[in-house]
Design a protein around this nucleic acid. Structure first.
Lengths: 212, 212
DNA sequence: CAACGACGGTACGGTTGCGTCCCGACGTGT
DNA sequence: ACACGTCGGGACGCAACCGTACCGTCGTTG
């Protein structure tokens, strides 16, 4: 009876992609501006130029909205990241991370959501899926390949290696928020490689190519 | 006329320290529970078992309250941190940081406020004063002494060194929130020392004292 | 001992946001 | 061309919180 003569939605009775996109963009901006704690659907709707109903028709709640959009945004691109050497992989990874954290939106949203994840299990689970797992997977693969090449000791702790790889750059860009000076990433590659134990292979070509 | 026969407040007309303390503690707990964005004076008052007026008599606003209390809490103790060797200094520093971030309150409040600092200039200024400056000062002194001893190259970049020193541990404890396994800090000391360029002085006694 | 005066607590408008409901508008399929 | 049915928008009730005004209480000081 209900599904008998059911007709598929048509005409104006269809979600408009432009409005969905506007909501996504507005959510990101609001998230960066006020953080997850103070995020309000009304503000998102205002900024997007749509009505609250437009949002509630697409997502059931504020948490649902944030989770879906953030996960989608983080699912994006990720290069193969296999240059053949540990230093090459590190340099590429750092450039990708630095590029991502250059976006003002990302550099504000990511620390905010990570802090929120400490108290919201759902956000925590989602972030671990789209960020931690991904980063650990990438870092793990990077380290594994380096071990196989003989660049790193065989008993390298993956978790500790990931800490050493992503910690410094994240601290500088997202926490201390200091600019990337000339040659910073190059030096960081050498420092991290040395910290991982790769110093036996290459004798640190030049530590500080600067001349002030 | 006004200051002529002015009598100093006495009797019940004096701030009770026990209530001030209760407010401080409640603020910390609320800050950890809901974050700065959702922090409400009413909730703090409820948790402390006092009235809102008790809070507004002591601090003018939510921002004022948070700034004063957080700054006071961060002003606390800090060891001399001068063991005579780079590795000794690093080990001590890591233990202090790890101990501080072990407190659940600290590990939730600090990332939250750091994220908030990205959009609130007043919080940013306060945090830089009580945290960044302090850490950079300590890290800088640690590096400077190591340079003077000949343990590190003379052209070491202080900012980059601080990134390398505090980044990995902060990432693990505050972002990834992984536990500290046995020997993690010891290995981190060696890794960071090597990353800083101290590998020339000591040939890394043992990189990974584990046996799984 | 008596008066002072700031204390803590309650009560109060004003504001903001959540989530829902109802309405006219609109464009495709029959 | 018509009817269908979902869309977007505005309005609503409800709840929470901000910051303030008032009121009785209490201990010290003269």
């Amino acid at each position: 009876m209900t599904t008998e003569k059911r007709r598929a939605p048509a005409g104006a009775a269809v979600l408009r992609d432009e409005i969905t996109t506007a909501i996504r963009r507005a959510l990101m901006q609001e998230l960066a501006a006020v953080g997850y704690g103070r995020l309000s659907i009304e503000a998102v709707a205002r900024r997007a130029g749509v009505s609250k109903t437009a949002i509630y028709r697409r997502w059931s709640s504020k948490l649902d909205l944030v989770l879906e959009i953030v996960a989608a945004a983080a699912h994006g691109k990720l290069p193969a990241l296999d240059t053949g050497t540990l230093r090459g992989d590190l340099a590429l990874l750092f450039q990708v991370v630095a590029h991502a954290l250059r976006h003002p939106l990302a550099s504000q949203i990511i620390p905010d959501l990570l802090a929120e994840a400490a108290r919201n299990p759902t956000i925590d689970a989602t972030l671990r899926q789209v960020l931690h797992t991904r980063q650990q997977e990438i870092g793990g693969r990077l380290v594994t390949r380096a071990v196989q090449r003989g660049e790193l000791p065989a008993d390298t702790d993956l978790d500790a290696a990931v800490d050493l790889i992503v910690g410094p750059l994240y601290w500088r860009l997202a926490i201390a928020r200091l600019p990337l000076t000339d040659g910073y990433l190059d030096n960081l590659v050498e420092s991290v490689a040395a910290g991982l134990g790769a110093d036996n292979v290459l004798p640190r070509p030049r530590a500080a190519p600067r001349s002030d």
